[in-house]
Nucleic acid binder design. Structure first.
Length: 340
DNA sequence: CCTGCAGA
DNA sequence: TCTGCAGGG
């Protein structure tokens, strides 16, 4: 969760074809967490193998990655490193919230309140170290590269946008605060989604460029970070009471320094979870590293071992995925004997 | 989220 | 060919 700039910005709708042959630095935690929350049965139970290990993240990662590669998009997954001190308070709060949600989910499930149970289940998602390791193992087997960030994955991904990497792939706007020049959202193969009203809503890939955001809002990158701090970020999730996107924008436009903003009437009584100056500094200069990675060939036996042998995936479905993967790679590097 | 199937 | 739905692990 983080900053919601969607109310202020109209993202540009694009298609997968606009990302042909482009590398995307995909925020791995964001993506896996999304899978874990969403890939569930009606009552909120995640997919599990016969030993009771959750497998939702592997299912999502496998099929999503194949879909990207079928569209000749080149994903590089970026994992989180060491948790920054700024996040430790929020992290323990989230753990507590997760545990409460888990208890309520069990209760509602037993009472047969299926849809209420589902929404609690999504809030109870916990990405464990084992899940992360297995995800990396699957990516290795698929020949898909990943890098480990020194600190926040979003920050690392943001720093990679440039010559090789076209954009950050994430649902989370925070990568813009970390200075990503470009991000893309909704990297899903589905074209529609059920809306709350009951109908279906069209969903398309969205492209957001930092330069355009700053132009449209008429703020600097630094001021965008201040907006985040006012609205709430991972490092001060409560933000300032009563300040949403519009008020935040108005306030930052009227000031030249964070110090001045903190003295504003609306802001000055706020108890921040962390020193706002430190939050500002972290967004503007996060720990990132030069990284190297390369795309490899898929090891089909290893993929089958991870998914079918170890976690009870249907061999038929996995094989059909492998077939798609193979054709995707063939079209990327057409051989001399291919008829095109 | 995803695939695969049924029925239009 | 498209859309909606069930079930995946």
């Amino acid at each position: 969760m983080g900053v919601d700039l969607g109310e202020l910005i109209e993202p540009e709708e694009i298609g997968f074809e606009d990302l042909h042959n482009k590398e995307l630095a995909i925020d791995a935690m964001n993506t896996l967490y999304q899978f874990l929350s969403i890939i569930r049965q009606r009552d909120g139970t995640p997919l599990k193998d016969s030993d009771g290990n959750v497998t939702s993240h592997l299912s999502g990662l496998f099929y999503r990655t194949i879909n990207l590669m079928e569209n000749e998009i080149r994903p590089v997954y970026v994992f989180d490193g060491e948790m920054p001190d700024l996040k430790s308070k929020e992290s323990s709060k989230r753990r507590k919230k997760r545990e409460e949600a888990r208890d309520e989910w069990e209760k509602l499930k037993d009472e047969g309140k299926i849809s209420e149970a589902y929404s609690k289940a999504t809030q109870s998602s916990k990405l464990t170290g084992d899940m992360i390791e297995e995800s990396k193992r699957l990516l290795d087997a698929m020949g898909v590269p990943y890098v480990e960030a020194p600190s926040e994955g979003e920050a690392q991904a943001a720093s990679m946008v440039g010559d090789e990497v076209y954009a950050v792939g994430s649902q989370d706007w925070d990568c813009m605060l970390f200075g990503a020049d470009r991000m893309v959202r909704n990297l899903t193969s589905r074209k529609t989604r059920k809306s709350s009203g009951g109908g279906t809503k069209k969903i398309s890939v969205e492209r957001i460029e930092l330069e355009n955001v700053l132009d449209e809002l008429e703020v600097s990158h630094r001021q965008l970070v201040w907006m985040g701090i006012l609205m709430g970020t991972d490092f001060n999730p409560d933000g300032v009471h009563g300040i949403g996107p519009k008020t935040a924008l108005k306030i930052v436009r009227e000031h030249d320094s964070l110090e001045d903003i903190l003295e504003e009437d609306k802001v000055k009584d706020t108890e921040f979870e962390n020193d706002p100056e430190l939050i500002e500094e972290f967004f503007l200069n996060p720990p990132v590293e030069e990284t190297s990675y390369e795309f490899g060939e898929p090891d089909k036996d290893e993929i089958r071992k991870v998914l079918v042998e170890d976690h009870g995936f249907s061999e038929k479905r996995v094989n059909s995925g492998l077939k798609k993967l193979e054709t995707a790679l063939e079209s990327r590097q057409p051989g001399l004997d291919s008829f095109v």
